[in-house]
Amino acid sequence: MEVKVVKNILAQNESIAEENQRIFKENGIFAVNLMSSPGSGKTSILERTVGLIKDELKVGVVEGDICTTADADRLKKFEIQIVQINTEPFGGDCHLEAHMLQKALDCLDLSSIELLLIENLGNLVCPAEFKLGEDQRVAILSITEGEDKPLKYPLIFRVADLLLINKIDLEKHLEVDVQQIVENVAKINPELPVIKLSAKSGEGFDQWKEWLVRGVKERTS
């Protein structure tokens, strides 16, 4: 006997993601999901971003990692609200899912957050497939990863709303062709805005900060 189902396999994740989105709207929170490969500088970008923005906006951070609280520890000095999700208790997953984020939201005082930065796990594949209920998805690629990455991992660059190209300070020391990275990104997603920055030197952070502040204003206005 054939049983017809016709159901999106990720339907459950997507319905929880919708609940999360409702929570963000109700609390006037602009939520950003940061996705990249390991070592691209997500946490360094977060450190500089939080330092730059915390006096203007009420920032909260959700840190996703398979294990350790090292990333959350790096951000403790800013005295902002941080929740660390370790996916190991959930089975060592390689990405965040909407239900994990929902549990993390329970640990935050949402009424005093305007900008929620969610650091996904270091992985260019799976995070692209799981919506969390965020407002915007930001992919990060560092120039040390090579020019071909957008072509090798097209989905993440297709679903992203913004791309940060990090470690731009290293351009003069490397043989990497940054223009080629930008061109490869455009082949996958010609509408994807790109900001080149360096978490080390701070170059490009004005533009990134402006993007975040604009997102918060649009949410709260």
């Binding site: 006997m1 054939e2 049983v3 017809k4 189902v5 016709v6 159901k7 999106n8 396999i9 990720l10 497939e129 297709r158 455009a186 010609p190 509408e191």
Partner: peptide
Amino acid sequence: EKALEIVSGRELFIESFELV
């Protein structure tokens, strides 16, 4: 043209299963 809409390729659906 580069502005394209994806019409298929993002599917992740269960269609049916068979019971015996």
